[in-house]
Design a protein around this nucleic acid. Sequence first.
DNA 1: AGTTCATGTAAAGGGTTTTTACATGGCAAC
DNA 2: GTTGCCATGTAAAAACCCTTTACATGAACT
Lengths: 208, 208
Amino acid sequence: MNWHKKPRDSYHHGNLRKALIDAALDLIRSKGTGGFTFAEAARHAGVSPAAPYRHYKDREALVADVAGQGYKAFSAAMDKAWNDGKPDVAASFKRTGEAYLLFARDQPAYYSAMFESGLNIATYPELRTAADEAFDTLKVAVTALVATAPEGSRPPVLMVSLHVWAVCHGIASLFGRGDGAAFKQPISPQELLESHMLVYLRGLGLKV
Amino acid sequence: MNWHKKPRDSYHHGNLRKALIDAALDLIRSKGTGGFTFAEAARHAGVSPAAPYRHYKDREALVADVAGQGYKAFSAAMDKAWNDGKPDVAASFKRTGEAYLLFARDQPAYYSAMFESGLNIATYPELRTAADEAFDTLKVAVTALVATAPEGSRPPVLMVSLHVWAVCHGIASLFGRGDGAAFKQPISPQELLESHMLVYLRGLGLKV
DNA sequence: AGTTCATGTAAAGGGTTTTTACATGGCAAC
DNA sequence: GTTGCCATGTAAAAACCCTTTACATGAACT
């Protein structure tokens, strides 16, 4: 039987792993995290239904790989936005938060795989590592921001980081998805994050 | 063929709809939102694989019904916690936020169906209605809280409500699930929410 | 050239989905 | 009460998906 929509030049695909990830991203984008089957991803990549099993134990392992790629891209985007705190900490911090929202908006398939695929993160250690790395970038930014406060009145970095993470994730999840945001509101996600951080940082006694 | 684990007394089940919802809740709890099939829910309820089609168009419709029940229970829990702002607005507001986290922790199956099932809320109008109702309770609480500020320095209710909703949802989603919270932290969800609201309300210029 | 091994296919068994035809019995109208 | 309606359940069948097993291909190394 011919599984190829467009016949390949060789018997071997060449880069099926990447093709499967791309297929999964396409399918997640259009039908949600759970909206496609392993066989469908294979068809989308132009191979037989059994071929994906050469690269992944099961469908979940494919989604986990997608999530891992997502965390890496996410971490890189946050790092780039932070830009070592230059030109100044306040502006960089704001950019970093915006980068969180932009990633959720512009890479909804990655974001879904990362936070909504329902896969047990404990089962995939490399996933935990990649996720921790992304959160570390956020903590670096918070550390620098907190350091602008006078010594003795600096709030704990971990607490502030978790607050910021939760707000970003909450706004992104509820209001800031690319496609049909679940609970769309008359205020944009960016405005919501900015207004929140304005209030929150004032509450911390930090000037911005 | 006999589909009943324990034989029923009558040919008709009696309350298959409820049995299917209970089955779905059980299965979501143990295997995630996408971790079971329509046929599996039928087996769990002790009926043939075709029986559920008498009550739901497809599997998604069952999950949507579960989510709807969830929103109703959620709304009721928030309302009860708010208790008309008695004995005082500050305490009631705090209780309402805690109720959000407690619901996510104690009813993880409902919470998953509501926020992580990936179903298009626009497809199910009664779902949108139920969700709006829950959010309205939150807005009532915020309205009362904002009213404690001197006239002229009152922040917009919608903005504050969305901030609060986002924080609650972010904390609950990331750190506050009953089972294996995805990104568990050394600070409890309750502490995180309380510390955040302390900072945030101070930033708003509200005394608590 | 020959061997090896990663990568792909074919085929088969079993489960799921969904429809269609049929069976049951609760209930309302007489 | 009896009758007939019809909501609710079952059986069976066709199509598709999952997963494994045995086999085919060809790239890389000697």
